[in-house]
Amino acid sequence: MHDGSENGRPTEAAKAGPQAPAEAGPWLAAIAEAQDAAALQELRVRLLGKRGEITQRLKALGQLDPEARREAGRQVNLLKRSVEEALEARRAELERQRLEAQLASERVDVTLPGTRPPQGGLHLLTLVTNRLLDVFQSLGYEVVTGPELETDYYNFEALNFPPDHPARDTQDTFWTTDGRLLRTHTSPMQVRYMETHRPPFKVVVPGKVFRNEAVDVTHEAQFNQLEALVVGERITMADLRGAINEMAQALIGPGTKTRLQPTYFPFVEPGAEFAIWWTNPRTGREEWLELGGCGMVHPKVFEAAGYEGVTGFAFGFGIERLALVPYAIPDIRYFYQGDMRVLEQFRGVL
């Protein structure tokens, strides 16, 4: 942007104008040697100040005859201009040097680590749950949660588990001494929701569930489920499969397949297990991922909720599986040990 500093030798151009009178020589040399702004200012006063040498000469011009004055005036003005230019050039040069020195002194090693505020993050199970909730909310489902400490009525009876039936054995239950229980599935919320709402609706229930069974790398006494319940005037099994497919598409991408196979849960009829066809991100293999159970809401469940003339479907699955399988986490117990070496690996995108 300025005079010749781009060639690295700014002082060349600042020395003098082409017509600088010879008598300017010592002055220009002194200006070029000024070491700071104060020295430069001193020179400016000595030469161009009220009583400066050049000012004096200009004042003296008035005493000359017009002929001589013109010539002498031209000379003095030339002298003044070359001094002014030299002063400005030197000022700019000194300023540039000062800036350079400042920049040099302010240099930091940008490769050193930054001063970090502590790094936080969400638990992988929360990330996976959030992803699922995003999917279901985008499909128009309401999200609800419910108590973890439940009663036999909501966990079993209202869900058509007959008393003294081995179906209860498949749900190894943590009973409390006061006759309550830790819910063995998120399905009690089906009943609780239906007690306080009228169809049609689409809800999804995430939450912790508990099974009193031996703990190993794939089984925890505490884990998470997500349950969907859709009730309307005429909901069909095809709507159920469609909903599972929509979830699979949103979760995994277009072109996925779903598979339903008959099975038994007391609170659905017909009942099925469902799997989705996916590419396992860990192995790269295409395979069925068996996710959970589903079916048409059993008439006894509607009866418990006081519903008539409606049909509905429900499906539910474990969230841990969707967290364990893709990330090849070897032991489900890692989720509950609070070890930062595990937790801090859960940062990033799913």
């Binding site: 999200v143 609706f201 689409k202 859709v230 309307g232 095809a238 499969r241 339903l260 017909p270 099925a272």
Partner: peptide, 26 residues
């Protein structure tokens, strides 16, 4: 249905009007 085969179940979208209330229970 079991003998006919669950593979015959189609994939449809329920025809219902439901606007979920907002909220952040989790």
């Amino acid at each position: 249905a079991r003998l006919h085969g669950y593979e015959h179940i189609g994939e449809t979208v329920p025809n219902m009007h439901f606007v979920p209330p907002a909220g952040d229970p989790t």
